[in-house]
C-alpha cells in the first residue's frame, strides 16, 4: 500500500495506524497522528485502518519559544 507520510512516499503492508507506528519504531505516547486531516485518538490507533493513498502526518514536540 502506498501512503504519504510526513510529505514522503511510504510503502507498507501494515493496515492500521498502530501497525504503521510500530513498523516505523515511533513511540505512540509522544506523537499525534492525522490521517487525511483527521486526528486519530490514541485509543483508536489499533482500529484506525489505512487505505491506499492516505496522507498521514505524525508530529511530536521540538524546541520552540
Amino acid at each position: 500500500m502506498n501512503l504519504k507520510v510526513n510529505g514522503e512516499d511510504y510503502q507498507t503492508l501494515k493496515e492500521t495506524v498502530a501497525g504503521l507506528l510500530q513498523e516505523m519504531e515511533i513511540q505512540s505516547g509522544r506523537v499525534a497522528v492525522e490521517v487525511n486531516l483527521k486526528i486519530i485518538k490514541k485509543a483508536d490507533y489499533d482500529n484506525a485502518r489505512l487505505s491506499e493513498g492516505d496522507v498521514i502526518e505524525i508530529v511530536n514536540f521540538v524546541g520552540g519559544g
Binding site: N6, I58, V59, N60, F61, G65
Partner: peptide
C-alpha cells in the same frame, strides 16, 4: 515547545 513533523 513547538509542534513539528517527526523526523522519519
Amino acid at each position: 515547545v513547538a509542534v513539528r513533523r517527526v523526523n522519519i
